[in-house]
Amino acid sequence: MADTAGKTLLYPEDLKYVKSHEYIRVEGDSVVIGVTSFAADQLGDVTYVELPKVGANFKKEDKFGVIESVKSVSDLYMPVSGLVTAVNDRLSSEPELVNLDCYTEGWMIKVTLANPSELEAALSAEQYKQLASE
């Protein structure tokens, strides 16, 4: 397994965040969803990511998958409502991408927004950073 040690915690300004530690990258009427560097660091070495199939429909706060590390297992929750249009298949063979690069190579799903106004409730980088450091 890859050495995932020594990564610093970052919260890019151009992303939105939710309390359950997922991030949202807005791309037109779609969003890319993954877990934050804080979540990846708390989990430790990720060994398995279980993601939904393309075409799955979720409401905000629905469970959409499972993330498992050497230490623990956690559910993944939808930060918005929508239809899954793409899934990062690389995570099935390279789950450590979540530790190494959660915001780009370690993305999880792409979703067409059902209700774009839900984004208004999401946290900014600054707000999330405060939450994560509490």
């Binding site: 397994m1 050495d3 995932t4 040690a5 430790g44 070495d45």
Partner: peptide, 10 residues
């Protein structure tokens, strides 16, 4: 853990 369980194990 200090750095990572995987790093320490290996």
């Amino acid at each position: 853990q200090y750095r990572s369980i995987v790093t320490e194990h290996n």
